[in-house]
Write a protein that binds this DNA or RNA. Structure first.
Lengths: 339, 339
DNA sequence: TTGTAAGCGTTATCAC
DNA sequence: GTGATAACGCTTACAA
């Protein structure tokens, strides 16, 4: 791949041993606080000093090779924009996993799935793989397990049949929004589906959830395919007849809600007078709009801390029961002025 | 760290060799398309088949150990929220680096700096490290080079003295905004500095850039420490005397600009009548506001493709000249209704 | 054209 | 308590 390193070689444990005047194994014992091995305090101290002096940093690959598995929790991420909840959640999760001796790594891969993708992830012999549920196949999971990956965790809108799952419940988001709209007396409901295809993974469940909740109350919903740019959105709105125009819209998320509100207002429609609008994700900016945007807030039923603990436990025990829910997001309405 | 893997061991190149009836070395040759080694097509095919059948995935750590360096481009990221430009830029960069055989990896680390942090990054023997300029020290860079890291790249508002740099020019952003405000006839200028301390890295340069540009035109700027929440921001605005109130404000970025606009309007101030407001980052949402927000758009002087190419070249050649600018963002005003 | 064998730096199993 | 020593899976001279 690349040329060999030039310049001074990095210090190895052998170098440390030489400097400290002990055997190489002793260095390893000291560095890892090996259990069941007694090392005198003086030796311990000398080794520590020598390591410090040489700027010794154990070679992660050598360790992984020897142990058969790294301490990495691998999160392969294609180009999907990460929502706000997820963003915060994973930052926190990463911080917490460190406390358990793991390192959360976002791995910029292609958008492949199944066994082929799994093979690439497996190269790194991670302790766990955290990946979108729809990128897993039975063969892929098998491949990962065969590669010594202790734990495969799926992420998706519902429990995966292939692995324990972090459930980000997009169905509930749609349902919550629609229930609110109905409670506010709206009956001609519209649900935005982004025109941008990369959002389909989230949009599908949000729409379905909305549809189901509406159906349960005997209300129909209409699908509104909306582009995220103002001009395109304006065209969509301009195409509405007064009669068939919705009086309540779940706009997929706050971003689309803002575009929609703007173009509807420009078209002379009052929000919420003529049309109520509900977004999702509860972006800080939404509450600054006129009218302030009603939104579905997505929260977790469990803290990132609990997920981190559980994940660690699963890695250690090599648990791999499918269908288990490690985390489930909950949806709740934040009622403001737009609905 | 964790228990050893259970179940079937992952297939090794030796397993593949056995199945294909060739030597282990041959497997390596075939898998890597080794240059200067002729392998008959039939052998090649048999090896390929065997690898496929066993679901063989080469052990990245073994490869790294042997070669002394991995193909990873490591990007250690603490909890700093990534701006929009940066987000898009790095997604693109990641995609492009794959084409060169590298893998961009976001590494969730602590927020340490200097040699200690470098030691942790060095563990992975990455081909390159991409990191915030202020986390680098001379010792840290030396440590990385000693660990065989071919290339250390800094990211910051100006060329680093320690490494080649991706310059995200926050000075220019502040300057651009203030020049615009002055051109629009504003003379009592305010510059927002977020109350949130984690933004200081960006806020400092943006403020300084604004200050310098103003000074060059004989105008003073006033520092406005603004919290990001509406109530806090409202308090700040309420504290202004009519006389000393600014007539033009650079609001740090679009987020703060939106809060500021909202609370100023609620306080009875007209935008841009009484106060002109300029944001930065040109968020899509800004143009949806009333009035539509003027913003400083941050663009690149070079495409991510060029940076990827250059970075690859640097890795291969182990170039490490400090002061070189690999990328420099440019700032340009997007004039809308708020100024 | 293919096989043999020497390491890469670490951890773990034994002797001492 | 500490020190040899044998893997771990791979790449790459060099031998055949």
């Amino acid at each position: 791949m690349t040329d060999p390193p030039s310049g001074p070689r990095p210090a190895t444990s052998t170098d440390v041993a030489r400097l400290a005047g002990v055997s190489q194994a002793t260095v390893s014992y000291v560095m890892n606080d090996a259990p069941g091995v007694k090392i005198s305090d003086s030796t311990r101290e000398r080794v520590r000093q020598a390591a410090e002096q040489l700027g010794y940093s154990p070679h992660a690959s050598a360790r992984t090779l020897r142990k058969g598995r790294s301490d990495v929790v691998l999160m392969p991420v294609p180009d999907i924009p990460v929502g706000h909840l997820a963003g915060r959640f994973f930052r926190e999760l990463g911080r917490l996993l460190r406390g358990h001796g793991h390192t959360l790594v976002m791995y910029g891969d292609t958008d492949g799935r199944g066994a082929t993708a799994a093979r690439e992830w497996a190269q790194w012999r991670p302790a766990a793989v955290l990946v979108a549920a729809d990128r897993l196949t039975r063969a892929g999971v098998r491949q990962l397990h065969a590669a010594g990956v202790a734990t495969v965790v799926a992420m998706g809108p519902r429990p995966s049949l292939l692995a324990p799952t972090l459930v980000f419940d997009d169905y509930a988001i749609g349902g919550c929004a629609v229930e609110h709209l109905i409670a506010r007396g709206r009956r001609r409901l519209g649900v935005v589906v982004p025109a941008e295809p990369e959002l389909a993974v989230f949009a599908g469940p949000r729409f379905e959830g909305a549809e189901r909740a509406a159906a349960a109350r005997g209300v129909a919903v209409r699908r509104i395919v909306l582009p995220s740019d103002e001009a395109g959105a304006a065209e969509v709105v301009a195409g509405w007849d007064a009669g068939e125009r919705p009086d309540g819209i779940f706009a997929y998320n706050d971003d689309y809600a803002m575009v929609l509100m703007r173009v509807m207002q420009d078209a002379g429609l009052a929000v919420p007078g003529d049309v109520a609008v509900v977004g999702a994700d509860d972006l800080p900016l939404g509450r600054l709009l006129r009218p302030r945007l009603t939104s579905v807030r997505v929260a977790g039923d469990r803290s990132a801390a609990q997920v981190a603990d559980r994940l660690h436990q699963m890695i250690v025990a090599a648990e791999r029961e499918a269908g288990v829910v490690l985390f489930e997001s909950s949806a709740e309405i934040v009622h403001r002025e737009s609905s």
